[in-house]
Amino acid sequence: MSDNTAGSLRIGEVQSSYMAQARRRRLYSGIMLAIFVLLMVAGFQTAEDRNGGSFLGGIDNVFDYPAEVIAEAASKASELPGHLVHFFPALIETINIAAVSTLIGALGAILLSLLATRGMARYPRLIGVFRRVLDIMRAVPEIVIALVLIFILGGGPVPAMIAIAFHTVGALGKLFSEVNENADLKPLDGLASVGANWSQRMILGVVPQVAPNWLSYALLRFEINIRASAILGFVGAGGLGHELKVSIQWGQGKYDEAAAMFILLFLTIVFFDQLSSYARDKLVHGSNAGSH
């Protein structure tokens, strides 16, 4: 067998197998796309069948409600500043719920994430257990715990706070432990060699390395938690969500109050959204620039 013929034969083989592969890949993507489109269409149809009103019947009315609210708010424009002041305490409560639960959740997440990271764990055998604990805490939607606690504790901010904090421990714990995994373990060895105990090793060896990333994730979570705290208020926990529900159930005549609360909520979310993305940018990318 000469090298030449074998070479050209191989090229032909490679070419045809490449073409076959490309065709197969195109076929697979085609099938995937078809299944996806089918799922989307069937899904929207099922959702529409089980819905109170239809999509086409409602699409024209999407702006009716905002228009009514705006019209009524505009006709009582002079009362709007009063409403904004009146509902400000409720807004503060909503923000407080988010802040406290983020703080408590972050503290719990720091502890659990350190316990669940290889090389840092206090009890290396229990790493798996702590990871499962984080998985479960992350999987529990806030509303579940909030509703159960409202039954036991009565309505108010505390059930929402506990519920959000619980979920935050799981959500932040996973992100924190990913950050921890990228930390350098050499400082820990150094600290261990001078006789530091576990908490000293963590505080002096790990925290300075990972704090900016932790803080950045916690800020992102705070913004998410503000939304969660508003929505939980709507199902019975206190704060702005609760006030919003009351005035919406009242309907026409209290639209000006609803409008004031929409404005407050919108401004708050945009404010903290911008603040947290600015601060995060600074923390993660600008830490070198800051020290110069």
Binding site: R50, N51, S54, G58, V62, R227, A230, L244
Partner: peptide, 23 residues
Amino acid sequence: GVDALIWTIILTRAFGLGPLTGA
């Protein structure tokens, strides 16, 4: 910025209660 909560309220008025509104 107009949170999912407010969208939910607005859309419920237009489309009624149900999974489509949530989606």
